[in-house]
């Protein structure tokens, strides 16, 4: 099967690879790059567990072919913390226990990242709407909404200081 050359940046690092066109971005990240924090929960674009940032925007990586990211930049959950230092959104999810089994969590964190970039102080309804494209079976969502709210406050403090 014909392979296609691919160059992209993932979590700040340039990668070159040969990929089959049908390889989804999610599988490329997980298998070729070993970034297994991106999870596959449905592979048809509904559950949101595979959410990554493509050029800063939250997208389903199961609905993109890796070849489509040629020349683009991808951020996965592994790219959120700076070394040992958690991203404020991660901190908030930990403090609020905005997760249980953790399978869906990377997707929620990246969706929250995109939301908070565009809307620094979202209302509870705006948070609910924004994360309703990510499914969680464990938490009942209340702690996730609280996490996003807390993250917004943390980011606000960070901006002020």
């Amino acid at each position: 099967m014909a392979q296609v050359a691919l160059r992209l940046k993932v979590n700040g690092v340039e990668h070159e690879a040969l990929v089959e066109p049908r390889l989804t971005l999610a599988d490329f990240l997980r298998t070729d790059l070993g970034l297994t924090g991106t999870h596959l929960g449905c592979e048809h674009g509904v559950c949101g567990a595979c959410t990554v940032l493509l050029d800063g925007e939250a997208v389903r990586s199961c609905l993109l072919f890796a070849v489509q990211t040629e020349g683009h930049e991808v951020i996965t959950i592994e790219g959120m913390a700076q070394g040992e230092e958690l991203h404020p959104i991660q901190e908030a999810f930990w403090e609020q226990h905005g997760l249980q089994c953790g399978f869906c969590t990377p997707g929620f964190i990246l969706s929250a990242y995109n939301l908070l970039q565009e809307n620094a102080q979202p209302s509870e309804e705006e948070i609910q709407a924004a994360i309703s494209g990510n499914l969680c079976r464990c938490t009942g969502y209340q702690s996730i909404v609280a996490s996003v709210k807390a993250a917004a406050e943390k980011l606000q403090l960070q901006r002020e200081s």
């Binding site: 674009g45 949101g48 959410t51 493509l54 925007e57 939250a58 997208v59 389903r60 609905l63 993109l64 969706s111 995109n114 939301l115 709407a129 924004a130 309703s132 494209g133 990510n134």
Partner: peptide
């Protein structure tokens, strides 16, 4: 627009 899927879908 907001009725079309979720924002992650509308991003693409």
């Amino acid at each position: 627009m907001p009725l079309v899927g979720h924002f992650q879908v509308r991003n693409r």
